[in-house]
Structure formats: C-alpha cells, structure tokens
Nucleic acid binder design. Sequence first.
DNA 1: TCCTTCATTGGAACCGCTTCCAGTCGACCA
DNA 2: TGGTCGACTGGAAGCGGTTCCAATGAAGGA
Lengths: 340, 340
Amino acid sequence: MEAVPSTPARIADVAAHAGVGIATVSRVLNERGNVAAATRARVLEAIRILEYRPSSVAQALSLKRTLVIGVVLPFLTEASPIERVRGVVTALAASPYDLALYDVESADRQQRAFRLLADAHRTDGLLVVSLVPPDEEVRRLRAGSIPCVLIDAHHGTLPSVVIDDIAGGELATRYLLELGHRRIAFIGDKPSDPFRRQSSRDRTIGYERALTAASVPVQRDYVREGTQSRHLARNIAEELLRLPEPPSAMFAASDVQALGVLEAARGLGIDVPGQLSVIGFDDIEIASYVGLTTIRQPLFESGRRGAELLLQALQGEPAPVHVETLPLDLVVRGTTRPPR
Amino acid sequence: MEAVPSTPARIADVAAHAGVGIATVSRVLNERGNVAAATRARVLEAIRILEYRPSSVAQALSLKRTLVIGVVLPFLTEASPIERVRGVVTALAASPYDLALYDVESADRQQRAFRLLADAHRTDGLLVVSLVPPDEEVRRLRAGSIPCVLIDAHHGTLPSVVIDDIAGGELATRYLLELGHRRIAFIGDKPSDPFRRQSSRDRTIGYERALTAASVPVQRDYVREGTQSRHLARNIAEELLRLPEPPSAMFAASDVQALGVLEAARGLGIDVPGQLSVIGFDDIEIASYVGLTTIRQPLFESGRRGAELLLQALQGEPAPVHVETLPLDLVVRGTTRPPR
DNA sequence: TCCTTCATTGGAACCGCTTCCAGTCGACCA
DNA sequence: TGGTCGACTGGAAGCGGTTCCAATGAAGGA
C-alpha cells in the first residue's frame, strides 16, 4: 500500500521523486515531447505514486487563462433560461471549460456579476443570457479581451444568438387571425420591469403588426402587461375575460403566462378552446403536457449555439460580430380553435 | 477624460502610479489598516484612474483559496434539481463565493467531475446533489481538506441534508389508504439506472411498510419501475390501468412521473380523481398548476441549507458530520378522492 | 536630551506552474 | 578523429497577488 501524502503533491515533489527537473515534469504533463521514454516513465510513475494533480489555479495564473466560462442570466427561476443553460452545459461538456453560473435576480446582483466578470481574470469568456451588459462593462470586457456572446439579447458590438421576436409575435397573431379571431388580446411583460425583456416588446410589435396587416384595429385595453409570472398573468386574464366585450383569443408572450391564462379560464368556467383560444411562446416542457398551442423557440439550441460561438472565439477564430437568428415554429396543439 | 490602459493594470502599476510599494497597495486593498490616510487616498485614486481590479486567480494562488464552490448534480434537465440549485444560488448570493456547475449526465462525466474537483485547487468546497461520491474521491477531498456537503444523498462520513424518503413513502400511501383505497400501485425509478436514486427505493419501502401496517398485501404487479421520465411513467401507468383489476390509486415517486400517470388516464378516458387517485412527490412548480396532490419536499430549502452548512464549514466551524432531515408535507389537491 | 515605541512603509520570498534559454552529451558526417 | 547537430534536461524568470520582516522616522517617556 502506497502512502498517501497528507498534503497534495506539487510539481516539485514529483520532480524530486523522479529525480528530474520540474521543467521535465511539466513537459511530460503537457506532452510537449522532447523527453526520453525512460525519463517519461519515471515521471509518470512518480505522478501515480504521489497522486499528483496540477493546480489549475497555478496553471491559470501562468497561462493567463482560467478554463472557466461564465454564464450570466436572470430568472434562474424560470423554465426557459434553464433550457438554455442545459444547451450550454451540453456544448461545454466536450470542452475543457468549466461553467460558472451567475444568477442576477436584482439590479445590484447584476452590477456585481458583471463587475466580477469583467475583472479580466475570473473567466475566459462570457455568455450573457436575456440581458444586455452595460456599455461600460462591454468596454471592460473588450479591454480584457474576454470574448462575450449574447443569447436572447442584442448589442451592436457583440455576437449574439437570437430569435426574431417580431416575426414570432406576428406568427402567433396571424395564426389566430387566420382561425378567424378578431378580438385578440396580448399579455406581455411590464415595461417598468428593470429586467424587462426586449423580446416581449418585440413580440408586442409583431402582434400589432399582424393586426394592422389584417386591418384589425389594435385595441388599447386588449394589450396588457405584467411580469413573467403565472399568477399575474392569471389576474390580467381574468380582467380581460370580464370585459364587456372579452377577447376570443389571447396571445401570451410566454408559456408561463399562457398557463396563467388557462388557469384564469378554468377558474371562470370558460372553456378552452371552445370559448377562448390561447397561444403561448417558448414551448417549454409543460406546454406539451398541457396541450398548449405555442410558438416554439429553440431554447436548448440557443444555449448550445451560443456556447459554440464562444468556444470558437476562444480558439482565436475571428468570431465576427454576427447575429445568428434561430428559427421559430408554430406548434398547434389543443388550446386554439376558430371562434364560434 | 482619463486614458484607459490597453492592458489591465496590475498591482505594481498601481503602486508605481501612487508612488508607494506594492505591499502598501495590498494593505489598502484588503483593509489591513496601518496605512496613513493620505497614502491610502493616493492609492485609491490610482486604483480609480487605472481601473485596477485584483486578479482573483493570483489571489487564489497566493491565498490558497478560490472563492468558488462547486455544485455537482445529475439531471439538470429536471425540475427538482433546479429548485435545489436556486436555493444554493440564493444562499451563496450573500457570500463572496462563486458557483461552478457540474452537470453529470453520464457515468464518465461524473468521474471527470469528481476528479476535477478533488484536484484540491479548483473549488474551495463541494455540494453534491442526489449523488454519492465514490469513496476514493471522498478520501481525496478529505486529503485536500475540501469540505463537502451532500444534498439528497447519504454518506457515512459527510454531512448531508436529506428528507426521510421512507416516511414520505408511508405518508403518501397511508393517505391513500385512509381515503379507503386498497388497490394502490407504485411507480418508481428503475433499479438498473446507474444513477438510480436511493430516494426512490426508500419511497418504495415506505409504500410497502404502509401497506403492511394496514394489512393490505403488497402486489408485485402493482409495483413498477421506469426512469424519471413522464413518458415512461405514462406507458407504465397505461399498462397498470389495463390490468384485469386496475389500481384505484397510484403513488408516483416523483411529480414528473405523476404527470405521466395523469396523461395516461386522460388518454384512456379515465377520470381523475373520479376513477383514479394520483399522488406525486416533490411538489414542483407545475404540481400546483395541475392541481396534483403530492408530498412536498423542501427542494429550494435543501439547496439553501446545504450551501449554508458548506459555508459554515468553510468558515472553519467544525461542521459535525450530521444529517439534517428536512420536513415533508402532504399537500392535498385535486387528484385524490375516496374510491367509489 | 536620548532612548523606546509604534505607526508606516517597502523589499523580497512565496504560492505552483509554464517556458525561455543555455548547457550536456552521444551520434553522425566529412 | 574533430566538429556539428539535435535530442534532452534543468535553472530561473515570470504570472500577480499576500505577507513576513526589517527599516524608517516621528512621537512619547524618563
């Protein structure tokens, strides 16, 4: 039985044990070649005996890279960001990079996270989800030459992976229009939300555009906003359904909100899709369970793709500041039907 | 306008700019005191001008701590681990620690993750979720004196945060028995799953124990196993419902599986809870939406608590190898009712 | 007035690894 | 057989911090 040292071995210990210089050990470790087979064997044996593992911290300092990729995102609470993270994890699995997660629920957390990450040392690259880093931090990142890819967000000088939210809003709305609906309500994010997603606003634009294209006037009281929560969406939907002239269809800017709508309808004894059609956005896991008609956006894929772009940039490839737009699909399930 | 240096400033730059030694800058940075107010001001000014941020990598090397906590977990795919991670994130938010995420979907990923983490340098502490690290790695962690807390898993020599799965299984089953059910089926995880959770097996034990206590014989063909997926659970539930003498109630080892059961019932036109009662386990977000009766386990809390214990250990407090058992609650909603 | 005390300060060692660079030495060629 | 070449090898200089320790000098006490 080989003795286990009480303190982890350092490269010098290995060198001493093998009777070689530390440079040689390093060469063996990094397969730099130029090491005699016999020497190599002795070193490997010493490594085995001492259970030596190089300190990644020391390597990071020496090589000026950490092999860590930071992922900054708000709303870890929700289903869709999680799907994106899964995509990132998958893409990173085959790489030597670790993933550090920064959830920013509040504005100051956000501040802190970016500050931390822009310190040019903690991570080699950054993936920012559904958030636009302040210009100041973008400048810092650039100064530290830390590549950064945005997912579900736009910035003039950063590559990003997005969907066309306007088109998505149009797609959903047009579908409802084609079914014959004319009284179509929209439930999106609240503009006052500091984290308000651009995406929600764009979906609103798409919604209005589709209505206009179909010569259906946009009614102010059919366009409502709450935060990304089922509960709030439910309240809003209830209000809408109690209107003198309630909508015959609702387009929610996210599936989570659509669930709130369904709940409201259920609570009020309103049949879906008999009396009310509902369409969501995202196609999260539960959507298929509930049979929700929705616009599918490739969440998992967005994370994977973003991570791939970042890895490329990390490889030194000249990752152009390009915007990659992922496709959207209308997924028709059971919550939509022509109006009576 | 102050010039922004092209390359990030190092502590020596600050020292030079302020006309002091680097030791003094470090003292200011770490508020070690013993620095004249005027000197301090000059240093701070230099830091501001140069936009200096200490390199955490260099600090890590020098201080022998990384300020990173690793979280290892399988099934990032699923709702419940995510809830736990949220708890961890919350607990860590107030601390100076970052969170590195290691998702282990396969056995070799698992191997790799533990290997990486036990290298004694990458993280200061480890949180392992729903997984038991191999003894070999536990030894390594101990050798590197990296504290480790288990969540939803047991190990003789490591502190952990768990629930009493046996009691949970009993609680669910007893409730069904009290409603008057006698033909109660159980759907759990497959034993052949390499990641199979101990928890599922324990719930089975609780299930059997409750039946036995009520003098209801355990029927082999009422106890089924699949993996943690809605789809498989659905298939299994369909089989059960097609039995000559189908169960009047089903206890699923997780809410996700319970959803599969509900789906099966819906597909077969079987009314829940009219003809079939269903109870799940976990109380994930959707459960309340669907109105699923379930056993609530504090997922978020488990992550928070685990992180707290780890932080304590990191503070040098003698974290005893204790097992913290979190409480379970029966949450009665709409999917259970006495049999006809 | 001289010495001790103590707040300040900076030099230098060290954390553990990579790598440049110079030195060794046997092999091969003319 | 002398010289050149090239495969190996190890010393030492960073990477960017922290901190021990000695040095400086002004203030306080005898």
